[in-house]
Write a protein that binds this DNA or RNA. Structure first.
Length: 342
DNA sequence: AAGTGGATCAACCGCCCACAA
DNA sequence: TTTGTGGGCGGTTGATCCACT
């Protein structure tokens, strides 16, 4: 079927490589207003000389407002290790369990250090097992975590607390060599979460609400069973992203967030935007954010990258919200969200 | 201070799957 | 049922960063 199909885009005349701040702005502005129903059509409509796939990846891996930045926590790492032990390189499924993390990010962190960590752990486990079999003839427990001098203290605790025997343990399943990824590849992690609420209640991997990326796979109800560090997304932001009408705050079963947490979880990219504006000498305390964007675009020299006729983004960029054929950002925002609209 | 090698991460590539015509 | 299209996924690459010598 898909064989021999033409590439997703004629790569002639398109920008490649790193994204410029201007491109980021354009993409964010467009998606914020119009959503991303059609990735292939999006670049043209947004006035971007990029492949649709490239736009999609940029958005998903970097620009999405609900992304969590910074180093992975020990809990997150252990979650990755456990799920990877069950599913293999199903990065998107793993990412679905880690709100705010992308499959690409998880893949990178796995390939860079978690893989080594696991290898070391298995090595130590084998050594311990060998020692045991040499000494007492006790059956080696494949699920018994091995103490890891570097970071296994937490993992050991986690694994022990999970007790490797729960059948529905979506994360606590030990790295059972018999559990091949093939057998497990169809497992929907969220199903496991639902099937094993008791076990789930102990799992750090569940200790988070759901991100947009995991929206369709995240579980309802589990939040009721566990104490969740809340990573909430401003409903307004979801409204913006999803086109305002049918937006649903993702898995807001734990919607009783404190605002500081929300801000921390959601504002990194707003800060990036502010930083960008500062770099460009545009930054000022935002009193009228919607009036701010045109200045930014003026200063960045963002002209229409494509024919701007009928392009609301270009129109907006060139003339500002008052004159835009379609108002770019028509969602009223709370002050805390003001930076979303630049 | 300069050079080097490893680590990290953003981005790209190509295949696969789901779905609509 | 077949075929084309769009989107998603996993693997890989290349640029940059950083620690070490």
């Amino acid at each position: 079927m898909g064989r021999g199909r033409a590439p997703c885009c004629a790569k002639v005349g398109l920008n490649r490589g790193s994204w410029t701040p201007q491109e980021d702005l354009r993409l964010m502005a467009y998606i914020t207003k119009h959503g991303h129903a059609n990735w292939r059509a999006l670049p043209k409509q947004a006035g971007l000389l990029r492949c649709g796939k490239s736009c999609r990846l940029r958005w998903i891996n970097y620009l999405r407002p609900d992304l969590k930045r910074g180093n992975f926590t020990v809990e997150e790492e252990e979650t990755i290790i456990r799920i990877h032990g069950m599913l293999g390189n199903k990065w998107s499924k793993i990412a679905a369990c880690l709100p705010g993390r992308t499959d690409n990010e998880i893949k990178n962190v796995w390939n860079t250090h978690l893989k080594k960590k696991v290898a070391l752990r298995e090595q130590q486990h084998k050594a311990v097992a060998a020692a045991k079999s040499d000494g007492a003839a006790s059956g080696s427990d494949a699920g018994t975590p091995v103490t890891d001098s570097s970071s296994a203290s937490s993992s050991t605790t986690t694994n022990n607390s999970s007790g490797g025997s729960e059948s529905g343990d979506q994360c606590g399943t030990s790295k059972d060599p018999d559990a091949s990824p093939l057998q497990l590849e169809d497992i929907d992690v969220s199903d496991m979460l639902v099937d094993a609420p008791a076990a789930a209640a102990q799992k750090p991997m569940l200790s988070s609400s759901c991100s947009s990326s995991s929206l369709t796979t995240c579980i309802g109800g589990v939040e009721d069973l566990i104490e969740l560090p809340v990573i909430d997304i401003e409903p307004d932001i979801w409204s913006l992203i999803d086109g305002a009408s049918d937006a649903t705050a993702p898995c807001t079963g734990a919607a009783t967030s404190d605002e500081a947490g929300e801000a921390a979880a959601n504002n990194w990219w707003l800060e990036d935007l502010e930083n960008l504006e500062k770099e460009l000498g545009l930054w000022a305390p935002v009193e009228d954010p919607q009036a701010h964007l045109p200045d930014l675009l003026d200063h960045t020299g963002l002209g229409p990258l494509v024919d701007s006729e009928g392009d609301p983004v270009s129109t907006y960029f060139q003339t500002g919200p008052d004159n835009a054929e379609t108002e770019l950002l028509d969602v009223e925002l709370e002050p805390s969200s003001a930076a979303v609209v630049l």
